[in-house]
Structure formats: C-alpha cells, structure tokens
C-alpha cells in the first residue's frame, strides 16, 4: 500500500473545505444546501470503501518491467495458454502513467536503481509492487556479486512476493489474486 494513507482527520478537513466552496457557489441558485450535502456525503462514504475498491481490484493494469529471465515467464503469462487478459490484467503497458501494478521481474543492479525509482515515482497512486522471482525477492543466486542489490525491497515498498526461479505462470496468477485480496481488505499486511 502507499506509505502515507489518509488519516480520518485529513479526510474530514478536506471535506469541510470542499463543502465551503460548494456552498459559496450554490448561494446563487438558492438551493437548500444542508440537506443535499448531507445526503451526498453519506453516499460517497459508503461508496468509497466498497465500490471503488472493487473496481480497482478487478482491473489492475500491470507495467512491463521484465529485466531478465523472469521476463520470459512474464511474456508467457500474457500469451495464449495462460491468458492474463481474462482476469482483467490487460496486456502490459509501456508507460507508467497508466498502470497500477509494477511487476519487477529479474535481478536489479546498482546501475538500474535510479531508473526504477524514477519510474515508480511516475506511477499514479494507489500503486502496488509485486516482486517476481528470487532475484527481486532477496538477490537470488547472485547474492555474492558486487553489483547486485539484494532484493528490490531495499529500494521500493513491496506488497506481494512470488517465489521461484523462475516461478511458473500459475504462481504469478496466485500472486495477483493475493494482491486482489489485500486491496479488498481480506488479508492484512
């Protein structure tokens, strides 16, 4: 999840400021503001937990970040036999500004770290990260190398770890389903 979720006071303050703006603009039309606004705020609070989360869960758009061998399994995940589109993960996008999930597949070297950070900051909130494969989880077989970052969680906040070298595409499916349960609130952490 995001590092800085909104607290309840921040949400209420934002509501109050927005309500003042709306009231000023509605004075021209002589509408009874209190009743209408109370109903609107009730409806949005009910929607924000249930409906918006449900629509986010079921259409996660992943970003193509295949660096090395796990990228071949990522391509297999998107191809015909293990079709990723049937669950809503449309085919992988090239630009980070239209995606929700970043699937980091492959080992991360020290030269690559500034690029990954720049792309992660370009993604819009709420954004999630899946660490795919052993190299992104903990450094993998290149644990002793002089040029490798030991796991992507030293650089980015990770939500789901998928283990294997490389994991089968079915494992990635299980990882995505776990991410969906996490967004929906069924699993903590």
């Amino acid at each position: 999840m995001d590092e800085t979720p909104y607290t309840k006071e921040q949400f209420m303050n934002a509501e109050k400021e927005m309500s003042k703006l709306v009231l000023d603009s509605m004075k021209k039309y002589e509408v009874k503001p209190n009743v209408m606004f109370a109903k609107l705020s009730q409806v949005t609070k009910a929607m924000s937990k249930g409906l918006i989360n449900w629509s986010r869960l079921n259409s996660l758009w992943p970003m193509q970040f295949g660096l090395s061998c796990c990228a071949i399994e990522l391509m297999d995940f998107g191809a015909g036999r293990m079709d990723a589109e049937r669950k809503g993960y449309l085919f992988f996008r090239g630009t980070p500004r239209q995606t929700d999930v970043m699937v980091v597949a492959g080992w991360v070297t020290k030269s690559m770290v500034p690029e990954i950070k720049r792309l992660y900051e370009q993604m819009l909130r709420p954004r999630y990260v899946i660490a795919f494969g052993e190299c992104a989880t903990c450094g993998g077989p290149w644990w002793e190398s002089y040029n490798i970052v030991k796991g992507i969680d030293q650089v980015l906040p990770v939500d789901v770890y998928v283990v294997g070298c490389p994991p089968k595409p079915e494992n990635l499916f299980a990882g995505f389903i776990k991410l969906q349960k996490k967004i929906g609130g069924e699993i903590e952490g």
Binding site: L67, S68, G106, W107, T109, S111, M112, E115, W142, E144, S145, Y146, N147, I148
Partner: peptide, 11 residues
C-alpha cells in the same frame, strides 16, 4: 550496456 552486469566470470 551494463544494466545487467553481475560478474559471472568472477563468481
């Protein structure tokens, strides 16, 4: 190049 260099020959 060099974004995937991990020193296999030394490992």
């Amino acid at each position: 190049i060099g974004f995937l260099h991990r020193g296999v020959e030394k490992l």
